[in-house]
Simulated assay, not measured.
Amino acid sequence: MEPVARAFAHVANMLFPRGCVGCDRPDAVLCPECHALFNGCLAQTLGTAEMGRWFACGWYRGAVRQAILSWKDHGDEECDRPFSEVLCSLAEQAGLPDHLGNVSREQVLIVPAPSSLASMRQRGRRHMMPLATGLASYLCARTGMHVRACEALENRGTAGRSVETGGTVQRSQRLKGRITTRGKILLKNKAVILVDDIVTSGTTMRRCVDVLSSQGAEVVTVLSLAHTPAGKPTKAGRHFSSEI
């Protein structure tokens, strides 16, 4: 967010106390009830990842959808902290710290899925980086490994929200050749955890994983705030699984 806009937002919050981004309950960034909606551990198959699965905090609907949109598209930076916390909780529930204990790579990178340049200009920031940085700090403290956030990917495509774009084939065509690695970032022999805000069809996620793998990275898993399910999930232990 630009400094002037940030100043206005600060004054507005003083004059008009904010409400929860999910339900507008007064005096809360993310109230306990809405926070609880992000406490799931939704697991879906991802054969190209070391863990064989990717994970989401909750379903992209209702208060979860409202909260993410308020944070993502309306500059609500106060949500960075609670969203970072739910992503760290998801990593713990998914068993990621224990899995990393068996990883022999020289470094672990937390890589945000990239937004288009137009989207970043509109938002005025790289909205996933604070979450990636928070997760990196958590995993570093939790495992003792060298973990850092790294913007290894870029999206050279035009603007367009993945959750509003047509079907899987259309998304795949739109993303073809658009997602690439940035500059001279070296990924060979690095363990990578991809993080995203919303996974819809999984097309963007898989494209990112393919690009990272093509550069020699070992993608451990993918963590997302929310998932838009294509079909009815089936319960499997403490997770919910669906093939996409």
Rank of each mutant, 00 (worst) to 15 (best):
E2Q: 06
S241A: 06
V147C: 11
A36H: 07
C79V: 07
Q107T: 10
G40N: 10
H227T: 04
T200L: 04
S162Q: 14
P229L: 15
V163H: 09
V199E: 01
A7D: 04
D73K: 03
S241C: 10
Y60R: 05
D80A: 14
H74S: 09
P97F: 13
C20A: 04
S137Y: 02
G52C: 02
S115Y: 09
K235R: 15
R171I: 02
G134V: 07
R182E: 10
G52T: 02
G216L: 14
H74D: 04
G95R: 09
R178T: 13
R174K: 09
S242P: 02
G40L: 08
A226I: 00
D98L: 14
S119N: 09
M145L: 15
D27Y: 08
E85V: 12
A63D: 06
E2H: 09
V64D: 00
T158N: 12
L135G: 04
N39P: 00
K190H: 12
K235H: 12
Y60M: 01
L186S: 13
Q44A: 09
R25V: 07
A191P: 00
I198C: 06
G231L: 08
E154Y: 08
D196W: 05
E77A: 12
L225H: 01
E92S: 12
S214E: 14
F38Y: 04
A159G: 04
S241I: 08
H10T: 14
C20R: 03
C140T: 15
A36Y: 04
S104Y: 10
G58N: 03
V103A: 11
P26L: 08
T48P: 03
T143K: 01
S201C: 09
D24A: 14
A12M: 11
L15T: 06
G124F: 09
D80S: 10
A5Q: 15
A152M: 05
L131K: 03
K188M: 08
R105M: 03
P112E: 09
A132K: 05
R53E: 09
M129L: 15
P229I: 13
V86T: 13
H74W: 12
E85W: 01
G166E: 06
V64T: 05
R125L: 04
W59H: 03
A136W: 05
R105N: 07
S213N: 13
D80L: 02
T181D: 07
F8V: 14
A226K: 04
R105S: 10
G40T: 01
S89V: 00
E78A: 15
A56C: 10
V192A: 11
L225P: 05
G144P: 02
C31G: 05
H127E: 14
A217L: 12
A217S: 12
V64A: 03
F38E: 04
L153A: 01
N39C: 12
E2T: 08
L109H: 10
V209G: 01
A152P: 00
L100C: 05
L135R: 02
D73Y: 07
G231C: 05
G134A: 11
P26H: 10
A226P: 00
R126S: 06
E92R: 15
A67Y: 03
L139Q: 05
R148Q: 15
A149P: 01
F8N: 03
S137R: 10
S224F: 02
L175Q: 11
L15N: 06
L223Y: 05
R81A: 15
V163L: 06
R61K: 13
S213G: 11
L37S: 01
P114L: 08
A230Y: 07
